[in-house]
Amino acid sequence: MRNWFNRKNIVSLLGIVLLYAVVQGLIVFDIMPPFYKLTLILICIYIILSTSLNLINGITGQFSIGHAGFMAVGAYVSAMVTVIMHGPLLLGLFAGAVVSALAGLIVGLPTLRLKGDYLAIATLGFGEIVRIVFLNMDFVGGAAGFTLPSKITWTWAFLLMVVSVILIKNFVGSTHGRACISIRENEIAAESMGINTTKYKVMAFTIGAFFAGLAGGIYANYMYIIQPGTFSFLKSFDILVMVVLGGLGSISGGIVGAIVYTLISALLAGIPEWRLVITAVFLVVMMIFRPTGIMGTKEFGLSFLRKKDDKNAASKN
């Protein structure tokens, strides 16, 4: 267990706790305006979404643009569990994530043989099919949507976000994550080095779908209402843009992208008619002048601390 408590992890943990405490304090003492709280919780949700999509698109190199579909599955399933079946919140979130992961498995197995643009279009088609299915389900409200109580607090949203990011980061930083990256780098070579590429593509896709479903569940149990229209391919694009904005393949980049994009959207909320026009121009300009995103594939890390650890270890030897 000594490996858990290196200097880097301890500093990160302190930072996370501090961030949580400051926001929680502002909320408890009623200093935080509701719009800010909404934005912060949305940031948590979008961080889970962008990090999980990054696992599929950036780490494994499989171009998926149907993430809103998995989000929808998680949202509706968790809503069914918490409202229709009167289940507890955590069970609802978990059920949503698991069903979404199953959907990921079912969609991923046949479609992940496809490459590049073809896979992108197939996943986009899947996302739209999911939306239309919920549109046609009358017992969850159809087009009018499904209302549910708002049970998610800042504590829940933040905690679930932190746990999701840590789990995905642990996966990426393991030999399994390296297997996924090797597929992105050169699929034929990966297969020749003994990597079961189908297995790892489906695994990354399923894990990505799991966390997208979780984020969908958090979204549903916070926003009072969910409608099929919310989960259209525009939402998938939003998530994709966050990942690319931050830097495909960089977990911290995905987080930065989610924060920046959500903040921009929030800032432009006052001029809704201009919001998407500005976003669009921003996107095109970004792609032309810095297509690698804010972070590229680099990680924003505390590596200067780790180096000290290494030095300490070296001097002990």
């Binding site: 390296r178 297997a179 990256i181 090797s182 080095m193 003994g194």
Partner: peptide, 23 residues
């Protein structure tokens, strides 16, 4: 040559150890 271009030299080798040493 088909290396994993953006991975470090040692990670290229670690990928190949994956099948026999994976946890």
């Amino acid at each position: 040559i088909r290396l994993f271009d953006d991975l470090s030299v040692i990670d290229n080798v670690k990928v190949a150890y994956h099948q026999r040493t994976a946890y």
